[in-house]
Design a protein around this nucleic acid. Structure first.
Lengths: 156, 156
DNA sequence: GGAAGTAGTTACCCATAAGTGCGTAGGTAT
DNA sequence: ATACCTACGCACTTATGGGTAACTACTTCC
């Protein structure tokens, strides 16, 4: 056949689209922030261990205690990637047992502020979203009318 | 042994922490937005197909063309979950071939505005981040001094 | 002398998100 | 007559992020 199938056209399109997405700063930021522990580290360093108060530096083990449940591997990995992007700074002091402190940079602080915008949206609209969700699920339950074609029911 | 190991304490802590994270509106919002196609659908519906201009409703197939490379499955899935949360509305019209249009609701529009804040941050700071990243990688390359202990090198 | 705390690293496993392929119902175009 | 359009749904496979366990090296406490 002369024209490619829809699937083939999509595959080609995705090749360049993936390149575009990889270069897109918005997508990069989302990828950075959507890690499980990233926002938690950000708010621990940005608002103190109790999520209120002022930014202050914290030690590795202190972060590990505050973010209960994080494994040393994920904590390291998260801190390393944030340091790589210049969002936090790492300071090692050669005390008796070596101590390492992490602190938000100005860049990290500004990101923290931006992420708090998201937090604010989610807090003000969470009831609305929950209501819509409940209504949608209830409607689907009562009225199990499918959208497209395709009711296999029984495929022998 | 009387006291649990560090790993056991972490496992306990994560049990309640996961519950907290699941209930945390900020984490829910991040999970919602961090889907690969979510922000793309949002900005297509919120700023027109060329990512400039005004919000306007679009058809399923039009979205499929604009978001080149999306499979029908993922497009459906994304649209369905956004509809469930009341961020977009779905309207089916019984024309000759049935046409379905999707449109941002007020809620979806306000989320779109918030997400654009993130976009703005990423655009204004992308050079800074890239510079930090390059500097960090260069430093690691020149000075391959490891952080903690553990250089296995050869484990016989 | 063994445990625990300091700050990590490495190898491996698994659950989930994303992608692939195929099906559908009714109508229209070739 | 057959292929394709509309808008999807389902089953299967793959890639990746997150989690587990075990290790390092050094010191202090019991």
């Amino acid at each position: 056949m002369a024209t490619r199938t829809a699937a083939q056209r999509r595959a080609e399109a995705r090749a360049e689209y993936n390149a575009f997405l990889a270069a897109c700063p918005s997508q990069q930021l989302l990828a950075r922030v959507s890690g499980k522990w990233v926002t938690l580290v950000l708010s621990a360093l940005g608002s103190g261990p109790d999520c209120d108060g002022d930014p202050r530096p914290m030690r590795y083990s202190e972060l590990g205690r505050v973010l209960a449940g994080v494994s040393p591997k994920m904590l390291s990995q998260t801190l390393r990637s944030l340091e790589r992007d210049g969002l936090i700074s790492r300071t090692a002091t050669a005390t008796v047992p070596v101590t390492v402190t992490y602190e938000l940079t100005d860049l990290g602080l500004s990101l923290h502020q931006t992420v708090r915008q998201l937090k604010r949206w989610s807090e003000t609209h969470q009831d609305e979203v929950a209501a819509h969700r409940a209504a949608f699920d209830a409607a689907r339950g009562e009225d199990p009318v499918p959208r497209g074609g395709a009711q296999p029911e029984a495929v022998p």
